[in-house]
């Protein structure tokens, strides 16, 4: 079966001030099957959002895909005509943005905004589209949906607006849903609700989801697969359970150590353990050499790492691959 989305060897570059092409994403590959979720995880500036925008073919000015293919059900998105692309966007692929406060048009009611996509992509009449919009507001569990459909975005809370965004995104039953940090702007309880909602909608529609986040812990349950990006390179990828349970790359381990892990019913740890941190910053665009990009921040770095360029992703377990010279030692 063809996967819904297959990103093959994707590289994206940005034209710098001096006109040189600076790599932003390097040789990224992943696939998502129907009804499955992949989480792209990493810090800010690692290229997660650029991946999403490349799939939508909405890269900002100055950014270009330098190599690779993006296949949406076998169709190469990168070579599709503009008209075809507009027909795909919002219909076969749709996107939930990070900031629900600014991603809705302040001048139209939320019902109108959901109906808009249905009207254009599904050729429904205005009336039918409006009626369906209410159904979708109900599907994302907005109470009093009939009245809410007539409300303007500023009359809603952040969580409510993010639900509206999701309703807009699923309105045309897309094959692929890209959620770009859908919960970052929301408070923690609402975050959990949104993840639950996405999971529930996915069960019903079998949409493939690309979930972009920096919270590795939060996605382990929703995602089937995880790809950890660092400085535009995929440094660890594998099934979500595997990556979360036994991370191999020092960066992935660092990300997991940064968040508290609480579980109901487990006894309190004997001593309070400080949360970990990863010192330093993601190297700036343009200052990334062939070396391991994480080298300067890595606590486990050794001579091996310094003397050789970053290794390609190496398989260490079923479907679990890591780009680290010391992956085996670290696992041990």
């Amino acid at each position: 079966m063809t996967p819904v989305l297959s990103v093959e060897d994707l590289s994206v570059g940005m034209t710098g001030r001096d006109g040189k092409l600076v790599p932003v994403l390097e040789n990224l590959s992943f696939t998502v099957d129907k009804g499955r979720t992949i989480a792209l995880v990493g810090e800010s500036g690692c290229g997660k959002s650029m991946t999403a925008l490349a799939i939508m073919r909405l890269l900002p000015e100055g950014f270009v895909v330098t190599s690779g293919r993006i296949l949406l059900e076998g169709e190469n998105v990168l070579t599709a005509r503009n008209r075809r692309m507009r027909a795909l966007r919002g219909n076969a692929v749709s996107m939930v943005f990070q900031e629900p406060m600014t991603a809705l048009n302040p001048l139209y009611t939320v019902g109108d905004q959901i109906a808009e996509a249905l009207y254009h992509h599904r050729n429904l009449s205005r009336g039918d589209a409006a009626e369906q919009a209410v159904q979708f507001l109900k599907a994302v569990q907005i109470p009093a949906a009939e009245q809410r459909a007539k409300a303007y975005p500023h009359q809603m809370s952040g969580g409510m607006r993010q639900r509206v965004m999701i309703a807009m995104a699923i309105a045309c039953k897309p094959k692929l849903l890209i959620a770009d940090e859908p919960t970052t702007a929301l408070d923690v309880t609402v975050q959990a609700q949104i993840f639950d909602l996405l999971a529930k909608l996915q069960d019903e529609t079998e949409t493939a989801i690309v979930l972009i986040t920096h919270d590795l812990g939060a996605v382990a349950e929703l995602a089937d697969d995880i790809a950890v990006l660092y400085a535009g390179r995929c440094i660890e990828t594998g099934p979500a359970q595997g990556v979360a349970a036994s991370p191999r790359h020092p960066y992935t381990r660092g990300l997991l150590a940064c968040v508290p892990h609480l579980a109901v019913g487990r006894p309190k740890p004997p001593a309070w353990i400080d949360l970990g941190e990863i010192p330093g910053m993601v190297p700036a665009l343009g200052s990334r050499g062939p070396d391991c990009a994480f080298l300067t921040r890595c606590a486990s770095a050794s001579e091996v790492c310094r003397s050789r360029p970053q290794p390609p992703l190496g398989t260490i377990d079923v479907a679990h691959a890591v780009s680290c010279w010391r992956a085996r030692e670290i696992a041990a």
């Binding site: 996107m95 943005f97 991603a103 992509h121």
Partner: peptide
């Protein structure tokens, strides 16, 4: 460059629609 313009574009809106309606 505001988010809701990007969101409209991501929902498949063309330039004319974006200019006139958004």
């Amino acid at each position: 460059d505001l988010d809701f313009i990007k969101a409209s574009r991501a929902a498949g809106a063309g330039n004319w629609h974006l200019i006139m309606r958004v």
